[in-house]
Design a protein around this nucleic acid. Sequence first.
DNA 1: AAAACTCTCAACCGCAGCAGA
DNA 2: ATCTGCTGCGGTTGAGAGTTT
Length: 299
Amino acid sequence: MGRNPCCVKEGLNRGTWTAREDKILKDYIAEHGEGRWRNLPKRAGLKRCGKSCRLRWLNYLRPDIKRGNISPDEEELIIRLHKLLGNRWSLIAGRLPGRTDNEIKNYWNTNLAKKVHQQPNQRNRNKAENFNSHSLPLKMEPHNHVIRTKAIKCTKVSLHQESWKKSENFGTNVHPKAGASMLQNTENKSIVMESNNWSSSYGNEVNNPTDLLMDFKVGEFSLSDLLNSDFSDLCGTSSATYSNDDSNVLFPSSSEKPLFLSDEMLQDFWSVQANVASNLNDSFNPFFETGGDWLQDTN
DNA sequence: AAAACTCTCAACCGCAGCAGA
DNA sequence: ATCTGCTGCGGTTGAGAGTTT
């Protein structure tokens, strides 16, 4: 029972790679390309397991690896992205050219984790200073911050009366084509984005969103896709554009739960993405424009 | 000078997701 | 629908370098 180990461990080298091993691996990949890691050691004549070869290549030998210290800008970006994504090191690394997930993870664990815990960020402090009776506490627990980047499927949603204001207080935006609703809960300053089939049952207006329990097939909206896409991917002929087929177009992956975003989190998201989101397709504009409203500090 | 302690980061490990059979 | 193999990810470890006592 159980799966076979990724390789036979006996007789394999372990620990630090030698310059000779590095050269063999480099030469082999230069000739044959990346991939097929399992068979690579045998073919290349390395006494290493495939995983080890892959890791060595990705974290050290790849030609586009950036050497040297993490710059202050990179550090800032890591902190912001970590706030958004949590320990999704590969996603974070994807935003930092030349940096590896392992490097960022190490840097976080050795430098930033302490730093971040010591100092709440300046903006939070400024906001806290502006706190008034209409605001809710701005302390953001990690589980509120972190975007669920895994594509998960949502089958049901339940909205409880107490947690939502009466229907006239809802800020509701339904894209006419995709039928995606974005409901702003003004009470807790967060939003829930829902793709829906159910919107078709009550058109563009949510007249009675309370006590709502319904089956709905989620569309597929994955922020990891968004982050991975570098945004420009979403422009032009992207599959994320609206089309005449109104189902699941804006949201290309699935979600088990509605995606909750606080305005704080969204601000970070927009700001982090600002440098890559300069040319968004019109199809995404309704989403961002609505987001812009939510970003207004209502204090 | 050397022992003790701390820090860094490359490497390892187990698990999960995905694709193909 | 299920199984299997491969790949990628995130958590953890431990050797070596650096610092303190």
